Simulated assay, not measured.
Amino acid sequence: GPNGSGKSKVGEALRFVGAGDELKGQAVFRLEGGRVLVDRLRLLGRGSWEGGGYWSPEGSDLYLSLKDTVFTPVLQVVPPLKPYRPEGSGSLLLRLKGEGFQVEFKDFRFRLGPVAGYLPQGLLSLNGGARAEGELTLLAPFPGKARLGLEGRLEEFQISAKGVVTLPGLKEETPAEVAFRYPGYGVEIHLGEAQAQGTLFPLRLAGYGRLPLYYPRYYLQEGLLDVKSFFLYEEKGTYHLTGNAEVLRAKLALPEARAKELTQGGVDLE
């Protein structure tokens, strides 16, 4: 528009490429009286991205619909996420209105650094109150299942997950609770009697606690490890772990299958 009108319009052809996937299309934005208006957002490739509405510090009315698509090309150009080689796919519907927001997930798969998971169907909503629905399946670094929770307001909120995980080396399914806070990317983890806290971006985790162990392949039938302290951090794409621990208890024995083999072979273990 003419100078002094306080209006400007930007129309851009967009193209995102990452991990072998591509999204391309057009976005038309207007800046008007402190508002960012999205006249058009449409990207196509694997699935589709569509959106429209406006955003301002005083209030918003914005929607974004991502159907059967891949998020990887876009996620990989976000500077804080880039070192973690993020991946994502599925469907997502985002509504940002007034003081709140709502995100619906469907067949949503993600990977962020060593963490990967799947959300068949879920809902996160902050609009006066806070609500979260859905069951998260964790695939890496270890298997687990958890129910989602959410509390806070749009500018500052916490997402939590409570459930159980199956860790290699632990004797049984272990109760787990994870809380993620925004902004600041703070995270707190409780795993049985162990706990850790720190930040996700950048990754900095410190913790301590006791863990029951079970490694029959290495003759450990039962053990208890007291982790005095540990520190996990990421630097330039490499993960570092330091710490110290004490073995409080260890019961060694041959696995049952191996003991039977030796007995059948003429070795009496009794």
Rank of each mutant, 00 (worst) to 15 (best):
1 G>H: 04
3 N>D: 14
3 N>I: 12
12 E>R: 13
14 L>W: 03
15 R>Q: 13
15 R>G: 11
19 A>L: 12
21 D>W: 07
21 D>C: 01
23 L>K: 14
24 K>I: 08
25 G>S: 04
27 A>T: 03
27 A>K: 07
30 R>L: 10
31 L>Q: 15
39 D>S: 11
41 L>V: 00
41 L>N: 02
42 R>D: 08
54 Y>C: 01
54 Y>L: 07
54 Y>T: 02
55 W>M: 12
57 P>D: 09
59 G>P: 04
59 G>W: 00
62 L>R: 06
63 Y>W: 12
65 S>G: 04
65 S>R: 08
66 L>W: 01
67 K>D: 12
67 K>A: 07
67 K>V: 11
70 V>W: 09
73 P>N: 05
74 V>S: 08
77 V>Y: 13
80 P>E: 12
80 P>K: 05
80 P>R: 11
82 K>L: 12
86 P>H: 06
87 E>V: 14
91 S>G: 05
95 R>H: 14
96 L>M: 09
97 K>R: 13
98 G>K: 02
98 G>R: 06
99 E>K: 10
99 E>H: 08
100 G>I: 07
100 G>L: 05
104 E>R: 15
105 F>E: 14
106 K>R: 15
110 F>W: 11
112 L>G: 00
117 G>H: 13
118 Y>Q: 11
119 L>S: 10
120 P>M: 03
123 L>D: 04
123 L>S: 14
124 L>P: 01
124 L>E: 03
135 E>K: 06
135 E>M: 06
136 L>G: 06
137 T>D: 07
140 A>P: 01
140 A>K: 15
140 A>W: 05
141 P>W: 10
142 F>K: 10
148 L>D: 06
148 L>E: 05
148 L>Y: 02
150 L>K: 10
150 L>E: 04
152 G>Y: 06
152 G>S: 06
153 R>D: 03
154 L>S: 13
154 L>W: 08
154 L>E: 04
157 F>T: 09
160 S>I: 10
161 A>H: 04
162 K>G: 11
166 T>I: 11
167 L>K: 11
169 G>K: 03
171 K>D: 04
172 E>W: 05
173 E>N: 14
178 V>P: 07
178 V>S: 03
178 V>R: 01
179 A>F: 12
179 A>C: 02
184 G>Q: 09
185 Y>D: 14
187 V>Y: 10
188 E>F: 01
190 H>D: 03
190 H>S: 03
191 L>E: 00
194 A>G: 05
201 F>P: 14
202 P>N: 09
203 L>N: 08
206 A>Q: 09
209 G>T: 03
216 P>M: 04
216 P>S: 02
217 R>G: 01
223 G>V: 02
226 D>M: 00
229 S>N: 09
230 F>D: 01
230 F>L: 04
232 L>I: 10
233 Y>Q: 12
234 E>R: 15
235 E>V: 07
236 K>E: 15
237 G>I: 02
238 T>E: 15
238 T>S: 12
240 H>I: 06
241 L>C: 06
242 T>A: 15
243 G>T: 02
245 A>H: 09
246 E>P: 05
249 R>W: 11
255 P>A: 08
258 R>Q: 08
260 K>V: 11
261 E>M: 02
262 L>K: 12
262 L>C: 00
263 T>G: 04
263 T>V: 13
265 G>T: 01
270 E>N: 15
